[in-house]
Amino acid sequence: MNKITERLYNGIIKENPTFILMLGMCPTLAVTTSAINGLGMGLSSTVVLALSNLIISALRNIIPDRVRMPAFIVVVASFVTIVQFLVQGFVPSLYASLGIYIPLIVVNCIILGRAESYASKNPPIPSLFDGIGMGLGFTMSLTIIGLVREILGAGQAFGKQILPLADASTGQAGYTPISIFVLAPGAFFVLSILVAVMNVVRKKSEEKGKPLPAAQGCLGEGCQGCGFASMCSGKSMEEIQATTEKSEKE
């Protein structure tokens, strides 16, 4: 029981995939135009994450090590297809606004990252709760980012007008929406402020002697979650070539 609560706490707070690990930035930027979209995307990913973690963990002793990546991808892609049809059938409005980003859950690095780093090494039940915890952490972050963008960009929260809008024709005073926040550039600005805030938090917690887990995504030092970390992260052509040649010799 302790293990389960520990996994949930780990996913939602301690290693929150968006705020702390900085993984899965494509969907984070693309779908957070409103809190509802963020919530929908987060919950879809949670279902995929939990079920694929469960299945991968149950099959971890059967899948040969050499072909584990393709095997993981097939499992994840199957669940993504199921979720895609469920969303299309039961919440068509959400399906219309998320569009292509639902099938793209397959390449979300949180899911393959958890499969590789946790589910393939641990028994099914903790893996299931690891998936649920990570998924809920992702959902929470997407909803918060979506809420901030929606309030700033439209004065709304979950589709309800919470800030009365100014009306020039009647001379009524009110909130003038900064509509850039619901458009593409706003996503980059919100994320950059989030990264800057996290940099400050990270520094503070290091000074206190309790460092946060390192960022793993492309916004961190490298892309540890990605499997090609040693090659990527802004090296020059020669350095990348040298790394590849070295790994080929081995």
């Binding site: 850039i180 458009l183 593409a184 996503a187 980059f188 950059s192 402020i193 990264v195 940099n199 400050v200």
Partner: peptide, 22 residues
């Protein structure tokens, strides 16, 4: 500014580029 060093300033740049492409 300190907190924006690294990837944060890159995202601000990307945002400005996105505005230009708009």
């Amino acid at each position: 500014p300190g907190p924006f060093k690294g990837s944060a300033i890159v995202l601000v740049t990307a945002g400005l580029m996105a505005m230009a492409f708009f």
